[in-house]
Design a protein around this nucleic acid. Structure first.
Lengths: 258, 258
DNA sequence: AACGACGTTTCAAATAATGAAACACTTTTT
DNA sequence: AAAAAGTGTTTCATTATTTGAAACGTCGTT
């Protein structure tokens, strides 16, 4: 039987509590939230701080994620394998399409944002590299579901949580199923203000040279800038980007990074 | 007396062994290199793998850094505070200057690469965001030393390791001192193939609105593309960028991130 | 001055980490 | 084919560390 190190597990469990929505924690606060003893939490936090993994704000005595994680995060191989290869393509697509461009992969039934290039226009999206988005109400997610092998797709959909984000969010599995079929025949997916009101996205699949689905590439912009009759143009630019990525990554497989 | 958690310290010590130059480790290899027991290393690596912090390559059974670190690294506040603010400026500078642009801060007596935007030209630099470079043979490092308060600067220089990288590397403290004085009067620093043959860099300081030194901004390119008489132009574009950053970050202080 | 909230330290009791050796397996050498 | 040498993995008694209730010191509030 494999015996894991509990302290290490606890440490990373604590780190996972430092999210964008809750970026700082006090000792007692975190102890209460995790149901652990104050002393335990205190010592773990102090340890992580001594390593630069956390940082203690001198004013408030609260903890935040530290530069050590920034450092380690940028050392991850992914950078050299996927992002490093695809980033220039994303820049090109963003320039051509004049909107914010994202690259996402499927990871534990969610869309994991691998890279983005922001629109030259001023609009800021709340998306962040390294974060997760739901699959059922994003164009990236729909692509990543639709082009999955049939059995895997079925399993994913059956376990899905179709939470509602806007009035446009698809909340019924039957409806999602039929839309995914359309996505597969069209080879592109749309998100019409289904995650956030005012935000429209278009995405296309990215395959490797063995025609395995690797990622999805999307353009996102404000609904009022979206021109319905330019959809074909958007899709064209994105598909051009997807092809460029395909030729760059060759036989790269998700198995090599996940 | 503060008691730290040994397991957590060991875990992060292991992670630090996964560098760009040595990105994968086997159990025995890492045990020997750290002087620890095989079993201990095995269990720690297995634990980190179960958390997604490490990834085990299915072919070779060797370990690499995993996506969890990518995720945590991008969650670090720094992104929202410094990089997030300055990245657009770097893009602008890179476009104007047609060379690769770096932003670096001083961290444990080394240059810590906070962000970069690659040249539109094809040349690839080996630099990576999140990595460290020496201070005495980079333009960024010279700036970060030169504009330090006098006492801090003295202390930094006295502890410095002036390793030689090329025949141009400054290896004598006296020489470095005088060059730093020049840097301070000129308000820019040069690296003439002192770290890597064929690579020339120019850097300028970045201050916040309290005139505290925050970072250094540099342009790097191949020596044969460097036009001596265009130096003033390079410096001008960089200083324009530094001013743009200053007005964006306001009273941002390094104390808030380090 | 008393209170409450915070991070921090203490120390015996409870638990988890340790390491030498054995195991299972693959690859290389004989 | 067999032996040797390499790998990751598991075992289990010994050892060392993590744990948690309570007490402490410090801050701002009542």
């Amino acid at each position: 039987m494999r015996a894991l190190n509990h302290s290490v597990i606890k440490a990373f469990d604590l780190l996972d509590h430092f999210t964008q929505h809750h970026p700082t924690w006090g000792v007692r606060e975190l102890a209460q939230h995790t149901g652990q003893n104050k002393s335990t939490i205190y010592r773990l936090l102090a340890t992580l701080e001594s390593l630069g993994v956390l940082r203690k704000e001198t004013q408030t005595d609260r903890y935040t994620l530290g530069l050590k994680l920034f450092e380690l995060g940028h050392r991850v191989q992914l950078q050299q394998s996927l992002v490093h290869q695809t980033h220039p393509v994303l820049q090109q697509v963003a320039a051509n399409i004049s909107e914010t461009v994202h690259l996402g992969v499927l990871r534990s039934a969610k869309v994991f944002m691998v890279d983005k290039v922001e629109s030259p226009m001023g609009l800021k999206l709340s998306s962040t590299v390294g974060s997760y988005s739901p699959v059922h109400c994003t164009s990236l997610g729909k692509i990543l579901l639709a082009f999955q092998p049939a059995d895997r797709r079925k399993q994913l959909i059956s376990d899905l949580d179709l939470s509602s984000y806007t009035t446009n969010t698809i909340t019924r599995k039957r409806l999602l199923q039929t839309q995914l079929n359309e996505v597969r025949t069209q080879s592109y997916a749309l998100d019409r203000e289904e995650l956030e009101l005012g935000l429209i996205c278009v995405a296309v699949p990215v395959f490797n040279q063995q025609r395995e689905l690797i990622a999805a590439l999307s353009a996102a912009g404000p609904a009022n800038r979206f021109r319905e009759n330019a959809l074909g143009e958007y899709v064209g630019i994105l598909q051009q980007g997807a092809t460029a990525i395909q030729s760059r990554i060759g036989s790269f497989s998700l198995k090599t990074i996940m």
